[in-house]
Design a binder for these strands. Structure first.
Length: 570
RNA sequence: CGGGGCGUAGCGCAGUUUGGUAGCGCGCACGGUUCGGGACCGUGAGGUCGGAGGUUCGAAUCCUCUCGCCCCGACCA
């Protein structure tokens, strides 16, 4: 492609709505344009990146035995009514009514419609296993679209659905997908981790997230520095070594702590050998409408989702100030487990604190010498938030913390959808059984932004070779006829060799061309200048390296091919 | 949905407090000088001041309503 003919509307200044690196750079480099909140146009460069991503996904899905389909995005809502999701999806669904008054919506995900397809056309166990996938636009009216392509209302997703005869076969399908996802993410050139996550309200049992590690991700993760343990902090556990139980004979004492509600305040106020580790932090939550208390050691934070899981609650939130006052008859900051009337969950580590200091459930007062078991009872669970430096629960390693962006998520769904939708097949024993399903998503358009989040510098994008819109940019400097001719020659040869190449034939100064090349993030740049040409050389420079190297003009095409090959992960 | 901020030329912004008929930089077009990391000079095109209503002789500016966008939080198959 000739730059002079390409629609690459790069911007010198940062559009003010953009904050995230990927958003800023994709906008500035002319890959995307915003049309509305969470709605973007893919310009030629953006479209090329999407195609490269999609091709890799397709190749690996096909290789894993999945078959591509294309389901409608415009869906009659009857299918969602069968599973009750027409209501549970709530305002996230883009709803519309056709001219006959039939209710429709734009598909946010396609479990129902694919299950309907399979129940109509698949009747026998002999047709299983089956894995169908598509790459298609999804629509979700997010409460808060943000960060450019990272959280959109219309986005492109690869979604696959597997159908199996039983749970064991479904696990096989799931594992096949897991392997395919590993190959996909490796080929994309992304640093990622497979993590355990909260499977949410999907009704799924087994699930894993493919998290791409970035500075700005929405999700907080921990991963072991020794083994492959990795988990979303929502579900992560730290190694726990039970200590020998010490029984205290010290009686509870009341301590006046006027105006000192927070842990840090109390520690500072009491001084001496009182540390946060001696304190018990008591937080009140409302879980499924009931006020409950969660207790962790004073130097820890509570994992809210962990509390909900420990309680078996579907819904949880922090109690309001007023609810705290009603439940403890004290101001916020003075809650404690002793005498608390209601369910209490305590972190297992906090049960070991001897002669602890806790809130007294009385404003401006704390209790000293509080001991779990002796002075209060509670359900024990792992409810503290795991931190970097904590021990790995599986090995002797140490957990490190990361931020990640969910690039893929795989689930075993079981018969959740097939039972509700009466999607059955006849098994070898002649009995009708519901399909055992799995679903597997990859956020294709999100991955485009994710790759930029992970691969950029102050000058622009640094695409991994496999998904760069062009692999090479040829940059002739000046209008010298010999330079033009040499650049055209190299451009022609690279194209003939099947390489994606952009020729910067614009009448621009060298600085402009270099800045744009860096901004666009093309992995390799061949610079053709008059001075070098006199000596028969051109420059070959990788976007990720500071220095260019001189290459004989006659061998630059071969060198470029070799560099591309080396950069592609197979 | 709660809190905060912003809508003026393609992009970034000033002008709004104190009403007087819209400006700067970048980009764009044309001419010239330049040419290895976002050159310089000159000329020029380009704006329903987010929208509606109101106050006024007169509204980007004041009032009312409304729409949109961004950030934090809630939410996120």
């Amino acid at each position: 492609m000739r730059y002079s003919k390409a629609l690459i509307p790069s911007l010198r200044e940062v559009p003010k709505e953009a904050v995230n690196p990927s958003h800023v750079l994709l906008l500035r480099a002319g890959y995307i344009r915003m049309v509305g909140a969470g709605i973007y146009e893919m310009l030629p460069l953006g479209k090329r990146v999407l195609e490269k991503l999609s091709r890799i996904v397709r190749e690996e899905m096909d290789a894993a035995g999945a078959q591509e389909v294309l389901l409608p995005a415009l869906l009659p809502s009857d299918y969602f009514r069968e599973t009750g999701r027409y209501d549970t999806f709530g305002d996230t669904l883009f709803r519309l009514t056709d001219r006959k008054g039939q209710e429709c919506h734009l598909g946010p995900t396609h479990e129902e419609i694919i299950t309907d397809l399979v129940r109509r056309d698949v009747k026998s166990y002999k047709q299983l296993p089956l894995n169908l996938y598509q790459i298609q636009s999804k629509f979700r009216d997010e409460p808060r679209p943000r960060a450019g392509l990272l959280r959109c209302r219309e986005f492109i997703m690869k979604d696959a659905y597997s159908f199996d005869v039983d749970e064991a076969a479904a696990v096989t399908s799931y594992e096949t997908m897991r392997e395919a996802y590993h190959r996909i993410f490796r080929r994309l050139g992304l640093d990622y981790r497979v993590v355990q996550a909260d499977s949410g309200a999907m009704g799924g049992s087994t699930s894993a997230e493919f998290q791409v590690l970035t500075q700005t991700g929405e999700d907080r993760l921990v991963a072991c520095d020794r083994c492959d343990y990795a988990a979303n902090v929502e579900v992560a556990e730290a190694r726990f070594v039970p200590a020998e139980r010490v029984e205290s004979t010290n009686a509870i004492t009341k301590i006046a702590t006027p105006g000192k509600g927070g842990i840090d305040d109390v520690v500072a106020f009491l001084g001496g050998d009182v540390t946060a580790k001696r304190m018990l932090k008591s937080l009140l939550f409302v879980a499924d409408g009931e006020v409950v208390m969660a207790v962790v050691r004073g130097d820890r934070e509570v994992n809210e989702i962990g509390v909900a899981r420990a309680l078996g609650a579907a819904d949880i939130r922090l109690a309001t100030e007023q609810e705290v006052r009603e439940a403890t008859s004290a101001a916020v900051g003075f809650a404690g487990p002793v005498g608390f009337k209601g369910r209490i969950v305590i972190d297992r580590e906090a049960t070991q604190v001897v002669d602890a200091i806790t809130g007294a459930n009385e404003t401006d007062a704390h209790l000293g010498n509080v001991n779990f078991g002796r002075d209060f009872q509670a359900e024990v669970a792992a409810i503290r938030l795991v931190e970097a430096g904590d021990g790995c629960p599986r090995c002797e390693g140490t957990l490190e913390s990361y931020r990640g962006i969910e690039g893929g998520h795989i689930f075993i769904l079981g018969t959740h959808y097939s039972e509700k939708m009466h999607a059955t097949f006849l098994d070898a024993d002649g009995k009708a059984k519901p399909f055992v399903m799995g679903c597997y998503g990859i956020g294709v358009s999100r991955l485009m932004a994710t790759a930029v989040e992970q691969h950029h510098d102050e000058n622009g994008i640094r695409w991994p070779m496999s998904i760069a819109p062009y692999q090479v940019i040829v940059t002739p400097l000046g209008k010298d006829a010999a330079v033009q001719e040499a650049a055209e020659g190299i451009y022609g040869e690279l194209r003939a060799a099947g390489i994606d190449v952009l020729l910067d034939d614009r009448d621009e100064r060298p600085g402009v061309k270099f800045k744009d090349a860096d901004l666009l993030g093309i992995p390799l740049r061949i610079t053709v200048g008059g001075r070098g040409l006199e000596r028969g050389v051109v420059e070959l420079k990788a976007r990720t390296e500071a220095q260019a190297r001189e290459v004989e003009k006659g061998s630059v095409v071969a060198e470029t091919k070799a560099s591309i090959e080396a950069a592609l992960v197979r």
